[in-house]
Design a protein around this nucleic acid. Structure first.
Lengths: 195, 195
DNA sequence: ACAGCCATGTAACTTGTTACATGATTTT
DNA sequence: AAAATCATGTAACAAGTTACATGGCTGT
């Protein structure tokens, strides 16, 4: 319930109403994670239902502000203190795709790897450029967010390369002649992005 | 729709029925991603509703097998060919937590980072041990899956360290005296896990 | 008056997930 | 006969998401 907890965190700084929560959320994530307004209200309903927030009088008419209850503060504190444990770890679509691809007789797993790699490298380029050329207000939170995406994409690309290496090794005994060298050999992913 | 596509991929190799799909799925992911039986049936219903699969006669009584339709094969092919594009990128709970933490006046972002780092390093240790000491049948797909988790967790730890560095730099102008050295300084994350 | 924004909300849908119910067959 | 396993299914809920409806206020 990441969105709910985020809204709870914003409300814990100061009570506000729906639309401003959306704006605050998007400001902090630099517009990378747009939030539908409707979701704000449904999420607020759930938070109120669970006793984490309670409505207060808004500044102006037509504004329905909320404040965090004692229970809500406790839940929020726990969220900040306790690391997100994965048990089981969240299903990764890409990993599932690869696991299925290497078994499927009609699918060339190397093709899947190359397609995914191309997509990941493109995204990596986009976000690296975005970081190097930040739009308008540069924000620490925004920087951390973008760097997180870059780190994750780098890990993804390295994993795809490792997969290919394992596949080559797995099928090595099947070929008697040399295979064509992979098309992406000259392309290199920088290991470190941070200065 | 990762689960749905996975079941579709398994069915595309050979038609089967619900329970065996669950078993196949879990066999390929080595039990790391257990699949609730109920979800198999609801997912099969949705796949049938969308015209991607169609029921066929099962081998025995009480078994309701499915086969992939032409439409389903097309959808599956596209799934394998097209890289997962993120637009917008999926919301990461940890990143949201950090972004909220650095703004919140009552929360020490460093504490959050250290708690998350500890949890991530623990998981990293668990999965590294799991990889080094595989349970029963070692499988290429299982190996790739576990390595993916390791790569992602490594990226997470490195990102958390980068966050702390940025925080230290951000608040450097606020302190006049030296701060206590971080507790985790002797602990080192290996950059490369693969041989 | 009308266009546009501010602000709230609702209905519908998707995927994921759990808990439970049901019947058939097999084992003890 | 009771227990366990195989196999299918349903109900309900959580979280995310979109599209749409509504009403009030503001500026031209």
């Amino acid at each position: 319930m990441s969105v709910g907890m985020s809204l709870l965190a914003i409300l814990d700084e100061a009570p506000t109403y729906g639309l401003r929560l959306k704006q605050e959320f998007e400001a902090r994530t630099g517009g990378v994670w747009p939030l539908n307004v409707g979701q704000v209200y449904t999420t607020l309903d759930r938070l109120e239902r669970d006793g984490l927030i309670r409505p207060v009088a808004g500044e102006a008419e037509g504004q329905k502000a909320y404040e965090v209850t004692a229970t809500g503060r406790g839940t929020l504190e726990e969220w900040f203190q306790r690391p997100a444990k994965m048990d089981p770890p969240p299903r990764d679509e890409l990993v599932l795709k690869l696991v299925m691809a290497i078994r499927h007789p009609d699918v060339d797993a190397s093709d899947v790897i190359q397609a995914e790699r191309k997509g990941a490298v493109e995204l990596l380029r986009d976000f690296t450029m975005l970081k190097r050329d930040p739009p308008a207000e540069t924000d620490l939170g925004w920087l951390l967010l973008v760097e997180s995406l870059i780190f994750q994409l780098e890990a993804r690309v390295r994993w795809l390369d490792a997969c290919e290496a394992r596949l080559d090794r797995s099928s090595a005994h099947l070929r008697t002649e040399a295979m064509p060298t992979p098309a992406r050999s000259e392309e290199t992913i920088p290991t470190e992005v941070l200065p």
